[in-house]
């Protein structure tokens, strides 16, 4: 018996067979979350041990565009990142569903805010969140607290009050 309101990702798929792929309900996946997290941490430690750099993705992206002299290692890391993701998609095709139907305007506004915010605030989830907290940097801990709190409030407003993406 399928409930009237979806409770799990599988319920959502049964209720929306024609649009199963856009399920906004996801299931708790502790094992792969922890495993993937360990890999992300290992990559950050390898980058610091290898070339003495913080694995901050926003800094690398902005630096590629504006810091002419030091592009090389940034490009190598970012190309590697896309290759690593491609490898996963090759091994497990379709495992990560491609969201569709999300409003393009919302996507553009999100990108502009993330770009301006990470540039002004000198970091994102990786540089401040993963690396900065591990360094016990008060700046990074402050930034992480702020972007987490703002992310939660925004997600609630956007999904429940504006009804976008759900």
């Amino acid at each position: 018996m399928v409930p009237a309101r979806p409770e799990t990702a599988a319920d959502f798929d049964r209720l929306n067979p024609e649009d199963a792929i856009v399920s906004y309900i996801t299931d708790f996946t502790p094992a792969v979350a922890l495993g993937g997290g360990l890999l992300i941490g290992a990559a950050a430690v390898l980058l610091m041990a290898g070339i003495g750099r913080i694995a901050g993705i926003s800094g690398m992206l902005h630096g590629l565009v504006s810091d002419g002299g030091n592009r090389g290692w940034r490009a190598s890391f970012l190309i590697g990142l896309v290759a690593g993701a491609a490898l996963y998609v090759l091994i497990w095709p379709g495992d990560i569903p491609a969201r569709h139907g999300f409003p393009t305007l919302a996507l553009i506004v999100a990108g502009l805010l993330v770009g301006a915010g990470t540039r002004l605030g000198s970091g994102c989830t990786s540089g401040h969140g993963v690396c900065g907290i591990a360094r016990q940097s008060p700046r990074s801990m402050t930034a992480t607290g702020i972007f987490m709190a703002c992310g939660v409030v925004t997600a609630i407003v956007v999904r429940h009050l504006l009804g976008i993406g759900s």
Binding site: L78, A85, A98, H100, A110, V114, G117, L120, G151, T154
Partner: peptide
Amino acid sequence: PLVIGAALFGIGWGIGGYCPGPALAALTFN
């Protein structure tokens, strides 16, 4: 700049669900 930047980033993250790393990874499946 740190405080304002982190707030703007959080708002953008909460709208789209992407931060910079995942957006690059998404090039391969979306």
